[in-house]
Structures are given as C-alpha cells and as structure tokens.
Write a protein that binds this DNA or RNA. Structure first.
Lengths: 216, 216, 216, 216
DNA sequence: GATGAATGAGGGTTCATTCAT
DNA sequence: AATGAATGAACCCTCATTCAT
C-alpha cells in the first residue's frame, strides 16, 4: 500500500520509486505474473504516471534489467584490483558477486530469471549481461593462461571456444550457487564463493597448464 | 498446421500429441505466454479435448515436466554402468545428459527454464529432478572420495554440505553449458561434456584428496 | 460413480434411471448448475444415451417436472375423499402434500425451484402444476362457500378473483412451510399441515361467511 | 441500447447504473443465465469497468440482494407507525410491501426468486431479509397476542415455534401473492394486501385467542 | 442398445494501455 | 506533475451437443 495522493516530486525521484517497486515485483512474481497495477500501487503512484515515465511494461522491465545488471557488474568490477594475480582476481570477483546477489535478492531474481528466458524480447538484455560476465571471466582465465603458457612454452591460444565454454560453466555454477546460497539459511557469500573456487580453480589451473581431461 | 476436424484416434495417441505440442509450446514461449489455444491448435485438436484429457493448464504443465524429467533421467541412468570407475561414470552420465538435452531442446527448456521460473507447484517438480541428479552426482563423488581416502587414509567424511554445494555447482554448470551448446551451432554434446569434465574433474579430484582451495 | 459398462436394459428401465438421476441432480444443484455429465455419470450411462432417450437438457428437465408434478398431484388427489366435508378435504390434502414433499425432497426441490422461475422455457410447466393445485384449492373453498351461503342466503358468487387470490396465498404458504419443515429437524408433516390449517381455516371460514376484513 | 464509448462519470453514478442493470438482468433472466456481458452492455459500459467497480459476479449479485433488501425493508419500516394497533401495523406493513414489490418487480424477483435458487452465500443474504420480516411479523403477532391474553387471562406464551411457523406461512403467502399480483393486470397492491389480511387476520386472531384448529 | 471421441460457442476474469482533466 | 475513468483483447475453462462405431 503505497502512499496515496503522492505529492509532486522531481521526476528522477519518482522514477527511482517506480523502478524499485518494479524490481521487487518482477523479482518476486516474474515478468508475466507481475501486473502494472501491482507495481504502480507499490510505488505509490497512479498507473498513467508509470506509463508517462517508463513507457510500457516491456520498457520498464528492460530498464530494470539494465539497472540491476549495471549494479551487479559495477559491484564485481569495483572489487577487482587488476594488479592482483588471476587467482586473487577471481576470488575477489566471486566474493563480490555472491555478496551482491545476497544483498539484492529481488534484483538478482530479475536477472537470473531473465537469463533463463530465451524468447524475445528480453533475450538481448540478458545475453548482454551474461556476455559481459563471461567476457570478464574469459579475460581473467585468458590472462592466467597466458602467464602459465609463457612459463610452459605452450601454444598461447587457449582456444577461444574453450574459454567461452569454461566461462559459461563458471557462470552457470555461480548462478546455481547463488540461488542455493540465498535459499540456504546460514550460508554466507564467503562460503559460496569458496565452494566455487574449490570447484573450479583446480580445473582451470589444469587447463591453463594444458592438462586437459579427455575421454578414455 | 493444426488440422481441423481431427480424425478419431485412441486417447493414448491424442494425449501424446497434446503433450508433444505442450512441451514444444511451453518450451519455446514459456508457461505464461503459452496459451491453451496455441497448444490445442498445434496438437491439431480443439481446446475442450485438451481439457478433457489433461484437465487444466497447470496439470498439463506438470505432466510435461514429469514426462521430460523421466525421459532425461532414464537417458542418463541407461548410460551409466555401475561397474565403471567414478570418473567413467561421470563422463558417461554427462555425455548422455548433453546428448539428451541437445536432442530434446524443448523438453530441456521446460525443465531448466520454465519450471524454475514459475513458483510452486512446478518448482517442486523440477526440484525433484534436480535432486535426483544432484544425489547421483553426490553418490559418484562420495564413492570416488572413499576410494581415494582409502588410499590416503584420510577422514572419510567429505562434509555433506560440501558435496551438496559441489553438486549444485556441477548441475548449474551443466545446465548453463547445455543451454550454451544448444545455442552454439557446431557444438557437439561430446564437446560440452568434455568441457565440463575439464572444468570439474580436477577440482573434484583435489577435493577428494582434501586439497581445498582457501582464501588468503 | 454409477456403474460403468452398463449392461443392456430395456428402455423403460434406463429412462427411469436417468430421470431419477436427473431429478436428484436438478433438485440439489438447480437447472443451470446441473450438467449433463453429472446426470449421465450418476445414472451410470454414457451421455449420448441420455440424449438418445431424453433428447435435450430442456426436454429432460421438462420431463422431470412433469413426472414429479404428477406424483405430487396424484398423492394429494389419492388422499382426498370427495365425500368428506370441505374442512376434512383440505386437511387431508395438506397432510398428503406435506407428507409427499417431505418424502421426495429432490422432486419437491425441482418443482418449487421451478415455481420460482418465470423466464421461459419452463414457466409453462410450473404454471400448469400450480394452476392445478390452485384449482383444486379453489374447488374446495368454492364448494364450502356455497354450502355456507346457502345457509346464509348470501350472494353465491364468491368472486372468482378472491378465490384465486386465496388459493395463491394458500399455495405460497404451503410452499414456504414445506421448505421450512424440510429444513427443521423434528418437524413432521402433520405439524406443518396443522400449522397451515390453523393459519388459514379461520380466515377461509370468515370469508365464506362473508365476513371480510377491510381497512379502517 | 448500451451506448459505446461511455462518457466519464463519477464512480458513484456509474456504480448505480451498473447495479440497476444488474438487478434488471438478474431479475429477468436469473443469476446463472445473466451474463456479465449482458449487464455491462445494459449499463452502457465495458465489462472490465464492471469488474473494476463491483469485483465479481458473485459480489455484484450480493450487492444487488443487499440493496434491494434494504430498499424493501426501509419501505415497509417507513410505513409502520409503532403507535398503531397490531392490526393496523400489519395492514400498513402489508400495503407497503405489496406496493414496493409492485413498483420494483426486478428487485423483488432478485430477492424472492434468484436469491433462493442459488445456494450459499446468496441464500444467506436473502434469509437475513426474510428473517427480519418474519421477526417483525412475529413481534406484531406476539404483541397482539399479549393484548388479547391480558383480556382473556390466558397463558401468555404463544409457543415460539407456532409463531415461527405462522410467520413462515405469512411470508410465503405474501411472496406468492406478490408474484401473482405482479402478473395479474389490474391487480392493485391494496387488493393484494387486503386479500392477505382477509386470509390471515382471522386465523391469527383465533390463534391469539388460543382457538386452535386441530384434526379429528 | 450403447459409447468413446470430439467440438462450437460462450462465460467469468484479467491486463496493458489510453484519454480527459 | 498527476490521476480517475475507461476499454480492447485475450485467456482459462465449461458445457450442451453430435458423430462414428
């Protein structure tokens, strides 16, 4: 029950209220189940105002994805010191990731739900965010691999597709763990991040050392 | 495409047609966006017949989840020879998993995307399947850990929560890779499975040897 | 759950089964809320058979009304000895009425519900039955009035409309009491009939003696 | 008749229009046969507006019952001067009752027919109104009985159940007469009320004097 | 005599969206 | 800057009814 008869506020403030309400509603109910009525009421404004500022349900949702994706990516980026080793960068990034998703469950719900929807019109938005994460992971892995390869005189081209596949796997594992951690009481972001490091670092290390697992 | 004035067919056949149409529609459009009209038309029957046989949208969706989950689990189970080593079992299982998901993209979409997105009671159905996979992975990991520990005389208790977390990560990585593989032309199930083995086997091995990664 | 795979029975028997099921269903749920599926299932036959024998929902309902109305009117008529006095005839008729309605609540529900519906297509049926009851009551009252008037030398024409009005009132009171009696545990048909005699006989007697109540 | 593109009106006005249309439609066609489309069209608005204001078909029907019951009870109550004798009160009440039902046939149909036919929760609403009338009648009868008993030194307890039964009979007779009067051209409310007074007053008088009719 | 298979039509309800103020 | 009033379009579901066997 938002305040009724909302007093005139600057557009920026109102927009933030609406987006907050939208993220909460989309996150908890999903895109289709969330109604513009719900969002407007939670924001404490009338529906026409939502349309005036945010244009349409699709646009509103897209804006939510963008805002939450930026917040998450910024949080991760801010945690990373490019001067550190690959291992330290990955650890810092994962810790920031799990911390942020734990602190913004609705925002994360919006993002992760979206990541699981392929049908247009939001596929693009989700793909963009995922691509950024994957690209970042790829950079770290790639950098680490190059270090190692320099030492081991191995072909410096850790195939692009390998990196992409690993990044996908890492991202998927992270998403899955984030959901699991959020739903497991007493589970800290630190534990989740450690679990994922445990899971992935050795394999990544092996790969970087060109010790691939292969069937038979 | 949907023929009008459908010829009389035995109920079992019609039900299968409807479920096929439903899986396709749910998988491609999502639960909410899929309309019973769409499904009926694709199945080539009238809507009332769908209701007569499958009862309601919810029931239909649940039936889809169950059918596809069973098909996937059966495919994986059939691929595993319990006499093999843990490593071989995991490889065979992953290969079967990626093969099946590649061959049944709509069914996999229903399981991985839609079932997660809608709240109860669907999430429960999907969770049941995930739990089976996770349990299987846990068994394999646990067995492998015991082997190793026998050799290394280590404490046989690989903490329950660790196993659960790892299984979550592995399942998430697999889901993510399955989606990625499906969307990447020229990507084979074998490659996806190998990527995931690469990614995970070394880490699992380390863990089984109690060589954990830890911060600092 | 009626028996499945009903064995071949003579049409008359099957029809009675269907009508029994229909009366029960219509009586308990009302015309619109009763579905042909419900009735067919309760009768233990398939729907097409119901249509084959009874033609349509409307026809089925009409047949129910006719059958139940006939049963009620027959029961009342059988209880009346034309040789008795008007008072005794009325008493016997009311007693039979309340007894029958108590013993056939579903049939009575069909009739009384219908009596309260004016919209076509059933108004006619209900009106016909009510007219018969009213006519009978009118006959008794009229006869009694003539007796009395012969003694009192009063205008023998107790206005037609007066009789009709009184009959309406009596019929309404009887309907109301029948519903009340059916819903009041421990209430016997005899008590209900006595209550109505109490209520009406004095007034009828006065009227027959030309002692009318009039305002002021 | 229903204008399209309805002009903007205050909610209160629109609500009254909708309720008017609903009473008319429910009264003439019955609850089940009346469609929300019909009602909306008759009210000259779109269906969603009906839902926005009145919530659901059930709620709308309940609101109709309440409104019409209140109107009827108010009309009767306004006609009664508590200073008058029981006889005069009854006469005034009946006159008001028949006048009101004659002037509002659809409202009366909703109350007397439809509300009875549908099960709970509507029957409850209608029962409430009937109970008020019955209670009022009971009060009048009881008061008159006491007067009489004071004169005749009789046991002042006119059995509760007797009063209830009589009130039921009176109410039923009134309902029946109201329907009859509405369907009989040239029939005035005054005549209907007089008929019922004729029918009932003598009997009530006898009862109050403890002169009961009894069989044999 | 009896039924499994099938549907046209319509009803209640919801929602994103706009208009007039 | 902000909203009360209003709707077109769809969606889920049910039902009386028929066809082919």
């Amino acid at each position: 029950m938002g305040a009724s008869k909302a007093k005139r506020l600057p557009r920026a403030v109102r927009e933030r209220q609406m987006m907050d309400a939208a993220v909460q509603t989309f996150g908890q109910r999903g895109y289709q189940a969330a109604s513009m009525d719900d969002i407007a009421e939670l924001a404490g404004v009338s529906k026409p105002l939502v349309y005036l500022y945010l244009n349409s349900k699709e646009d509103l949702f897209t804006a939510c994805i963008r805002r939450e994706a930026k917040a998450l990516l910024d949080a991760v980026a801010a945690a990373i010191d490019p001067g550190l080793s690959a291992e330290e960068q990955l650890w810092a990034g994962l810790l920031a990731f799990f911390t942020h998703t734990a602190e913004h469950p609705d925002g994360w719900a919006v993002l992760s739900r979206q990541a699981h929807i392929q049908g247009e019109p939001f596929a693009g938005e989700a793909a963009r965010m995922r691509a950024e994460i994957v690209a970042y992971v790829g950079t770290v892995i790639g950098a680490a691999a190059k270090e190692t390869h320099r030492e081991t005189h191995r072909d410096p081209e850790l195939a692009e597709r390998d990196v992409a596949g690993l990044a996908q796997a890492l991202a998927g594992a992270a998403e899955s763990l984030a959901g699991w951690a959020n739903g497991t009481p007493g589970m800290t972001a630190r534990e989740a991040a450690a679990t994922l490091m445990n899971f992935s670092w050795a394999g990544l290390g092996n790969l970087m050392k060109n010790e691939r697992w292969s069937p038979r």
